[in-house]
């Protein structure tokens, strides 16, 4: 269990103090895949770097399995860091070592040498599907392959936590997908707690159980991915979930209202609510955009409707639709 308690971090720079993190409290359960999402500069990297004390928090504390790691001596901290691995956007492999030796690196740091270490490293290369690249140097690998080697290296010391800072941001969508599957597989097989930092909602949708939304150094929303996806509350969350849309798609006249309908799960997906709306309320809605995604095993739909009516009528419509199970409706300003 990772617990962040009232974590704050500020940087003193030439042009003043930057408050990168402001009073952040979060808990991440064992075995969870926890996403931290936010726009560039929102403090994601700073937050994840506080978890292994690469960045010392200005205030607050980090507990890992009830151990306050901010109070450890540097020797204890080094030992603890073997339990908290990290992978990076830039892979950060040792360029003068071949793949096998890169995976051996953390084992060497622990003093594990010889055939036994090599055996272990070879098994790890197998796990990430690159057993044939043992003698190859990182310069000869593709980005996706480099990240696989970095993952093998990260899990070599049997860590309990894997921190991923934008681990897929330098990769194309297909490679991203394969790396995410690998991370998920490792999470399930080894029970490692994974913290995924990203600026892409698609990454969160694909593998995370829970997500925290970071905006300007603050956690503005936190919860199950499915809940946040179906009814984002904060402005930052809405921007991430509906990137196409708070801004006007079409110029609107007076009395033209845009309404977002998000439905969650199969029951809602089978409800003919637009037809119901016309039949029961006498309102004709036109569809501006619509999309469906699956998160976990559920289908999520998102429709943007345009309705020509006055304010009171719109209120009536949103109230009516909100009564359906698993349908969330709100007006888009």
């Amino acid at each position: 269990m990772i617990e962040l308690k009232n974590l704050s971090k500020s940087f003193v720079t030439a042009d003043g103090t930057v408050e990168a993190l402001k009073d952040i409290s979060l808990s991440i359960n064992d075995g969870e895949i926890f996403g931290i999402i936010g726009m560039s500069g929102s403090g994601k990297s700073t937050l994840v770097r506080c978890i292994n004390m690469l960045e010392k928090p200005t205030q607050g504390s980090v507990y890992i399995d009830e151990k306050n790691i901010g109070t450890l001596s540097s020797k204890q901290l080094r030992a603890e860091r073997r339990n908290i691995s990290m992978i990076f956007q830039g892979f950060n492999l040792l360029m003068q070592r071949n793949c096998l030796k890169n995976v051996l690196f953390p084992l060497e740091l622990e003093g594990l040498k010889g055939e036994k270490a090599k055996q272990k490293a070879r098994e790890l290369l197998q796990v990430v599907g690159l057993a044939d690249k043992e003698k190859v140097y990182p310069a000869q690998l593709s980005g996706g392959q480099k990240q696989r080697i970095a993952i093998a290296r990260a899990i070599a010391t049997n860590p309990r936590v894997l921190l991923c800072d934008e681990a897929t941001s330098a990769l194309d969508p297909q490679t991203t997908h394969s790396i995410l599957s690998l991370i998920k597989e490792i999470n399930q097989k080894l029970g490692i707690t994974v913290v995924v930092i990203t600026h892409q909602m698609s990454v969160v949708e694909e593998i995370c159980d829970k997500v925290a939304i970071l905006d300007n150094g603050e956690v503005v929303e936190c919860g199950k991915v499915s809940d946040i996806f179906s009814s984002p509350k904060s402005k930052a969350a809405k921007q991430l979930v509906f990137p196409e849309g708070e801004q006007n798609i079409l110029p609107r006249k007076e009395n033209e209202h845009h309404i977002r309908v998000v439905f969650n799960g199969a029951v809602a997906a089978k409800t003919p609510f637009i037809a119901n709306l016309a039949k029961n309320k006498g309102i004709a809605a036109s569809i501006l955009s619509a999309s469906t995604k699956s998160i976990g095993k559920k289908a999520y739909g998102n429709i943007l409707l345009e309705i020509n009516a006055d304010k009171t009528k719109i209120k009536e419509v949103t109230d009516y639709l909100n009564e359906f199970e698993d349908i969330f409706v709100e007006e888009v300003e």
């Binding site: 080094r78 908290i84 990076f88 830039g90 950060n92 953390p106 740091l109 010391t157």
Partner: peptide, 19 residues
């Protein structure tokens, strides 16, 4: 970043220099 990665793995200063 490579040095920082080694630090994130718990490398000692001496190991960082030598390795």
């Amino acid at each position: 970043n490579i040095i920082e990665t080694a630090q994130s793995m718990g490398a000692t200063p001496f190991q960082i220099v030598i390795k």
